[in-house]
Amino acid sequence: MSVSDQMMKGLLDGAILGLISQGETYGYEILEKLKERDFPEISDGSIYPVLLRLSKKGYVQTELKKSDTGGPKRKYYTITDKGLEELAVFRNKWSYLNKGMNNLMRSVEDAK
């Protein structure tokens, strides 16, 4: 099922912050974790601009580290205190929106 770009843009920041809050990680690993959790339609190219934006806002910090596989260095991301605050705001907004949408969809189904 296709999800609009606008909807995805709003959710991706919160989803990525949520994953980074679980521990230090790097871009490709974030992509794999999103796919494992059935997060829709994520491409390699959509992750990195979000990570850059989160970094510029001070929500995550980065560190270049040697790759475990012997390849090039990887940029690892960890969440900052500011990022944890933003994640809490996102969770509250998501909970509020999700509750409203579920109530609305139930009422639509009940009307059938």
Rank of each mutant, 00 (worst) to 15 (best):
M1H: 13
M1E: 13
M1F: 09
D5M: 05
Q6G: 07
Q6D: 10
K9S: 12
G10W: 03
G10F: 06
L11K: 01
D13P: 01
D13G: 05
A15E: 11
A15L: 08
I16Q: 06
L17H: 07
G23P: 11
E24W: 02
T25N: 13
G27P: 08
Y28H: 12
E29I: 04
I30G: 07
I30Q: 11
I30E: 04
E32S: 13
E32R: 14
K35W: 02
R37Y: 12
R37L: 15
D38L: 05
D38C: 02
G45E: 10
S46W: 03
P49W: 12
P49H: 10
L52R: 14
L52W: 09
R53G: 13
R53H: 14
L54P: 04
L54W: 03
S55G: 05
S55F: 12
K56C: 03
G58N: 04
G58Q: 11
T62L: 01
E63D: 04
E63N: 05
L64T: 12
K65S: 04
K66W: 08
S67L: 09
D68W: 12
G70R: 10
K73L: 05
K75S: 11
K75I: 14
K75M: 10
T78Y: 00
I79F: 00
T80P: 04
D81V: 09
K82P: 01
K82I: 09
G83L: 04
G83E: 01
L84M: 12
L84H: 08
E85L: 08
A88H: 13
A88V: 10
V89C: 02
F90G: 03
F90N: 04
R91M: 07
R91T: 08
N92F: 03
K93I: 13
W94E: 05
S95M: 03
L97A: 13
N98L: 09
G100A: 14
N102W: 05
M105I: 15
R106N: 13
R106E: 12
S107N: 06
S107G: 06
V108W: 10
A111V: 01
K112I: 12
